[in-house]
Amino acid sequence: MTNGEWTPRIVAFFCNWCTYTAADLAGVSRLKYAANVRIIRVMCSGRVDPQFILEAFAKGADGVLIGGCHPNDCHYSEGNYKMLRRFQLLRRMLPEMGIENDRLRLEWISAAEGEKVKWAINDMVEKVQALGSLGMPGRFQDWDQEMKSLEQKMTTPEEKEVAYAH
């Protein structure tokens, strides 16, 4: 958090060959973009396990950005397509968990597209900023609390019926 104003925290998974290199290019070109994104390098966007994405949200990320090579350009032929498939499935699932679609983003960024890294990050930060904090760790705490109180109620015999009716 900077100057007291809330800013989102975004975890990015960038593939080694295209998007990570593009982010290096953005650096070498001294482009300026929002400081909210933390980049984790993987060899291929195909390595991004849906669990990584869920884990990032669970641990407090407000958004997750995945960067891979353009279709047809994957260093490993087709890892990016595998990521696209998982991404489509996740996009169907996440809203049901209360995670808005704009919080998960997949971008094809080639090694030459430093400008696109800048744009994707700034655009994503702006959109997630508008959505506000996701606060999964806090929600987990609330749910744990709720579960605990329900369990307590269920173990108290006279309130058992109420608990079931609920």
């Binding site: 993987v42 060899m43 291929c44 195909g46 390595r47 991004v48 490993y76 595998k82």
Partner: peptide, 8 residues
């Protein structure tokens, strides 16, 4: 080649 797609 180490892409990691199978791992995921």
């Amino acid at each position: 080649k180490g892409c990691g797609t199978c791992v995921a």
